[in-house]
Design a protein around this nucleic acid. Structure first.
Length: 140
DNA sequence: GTTGTGACATCGC
DNA sequence: CGCGATGCCACAA
């Protein structure tokens, strides 16, 4: 699903699923992280897009087809958002080796997904993702 | 056409 | 670190 600048919501949704499929077992990505990889659909400020894009990612996950590891997408706090199936999500992640601390939070520093390969991003016309937890090295 | 709300992120206290 | 307010898009009633 490649697009350059103005994806339709439908495409946005499909891209979100594609990206989610790239998350390997035992790793987790955040809504904002995924959103930051996709070019802003409208004429939004980057700041607003970070917040609303994340919502759209969540909305896309609501219609997530089978085969997409939806459980590996969490919020930026490293926590499982309040939503239907939250308990199941934690269970699935635990089964993949993801550890939750006493407060029910995931250490993104360790389990945070670094994002797909740069080449993969290029093929799909996506931005280079920012690694979670780890300090984002300025690589232009 | 209007209104309400969301599987979020960020900032302030 | 935790909780509340804000942002102002997309979609369903």
């Amino acid at each position: 699903m490649g697009f350059s600048s103005a994806p339709n919501p439908k495409q946005f949704q499909a891209v979100v699923w594609e990206i989610t499929r790239q998350i390997p077992p035992g790793k987790v990505g955040t809504y904002g992280q995924i959103a930051s990889m996709i070019p802003p659909p409208g004429s939004l400020n980057l700041k607003d897009y970070e917040a609303f894009g994340a919502r759209w990612v969540g909305g896309a996950m609501a219609n997530c087809p089978t085969g997409v590891p939806w459980q590996r997408v969490i919020n930026a706090q490293g926590r499982i958002s309040v939503r239907p199936g939250a308990a199941l999500q934690q269970e699935l992640l635990t089964g993949e080796g993801v550890k939750f601390d006493e407060r029910g939070r995931i250490d993104l520093d360790y389990f945070g997904w670094d994002g797909p390969d740069a080449e993969w991003c290029k093929v799909h016309s996506l931005f280079t993702p920012k690694a979670l937890g780890k300090a984002q090295l300025s690589l232009f």
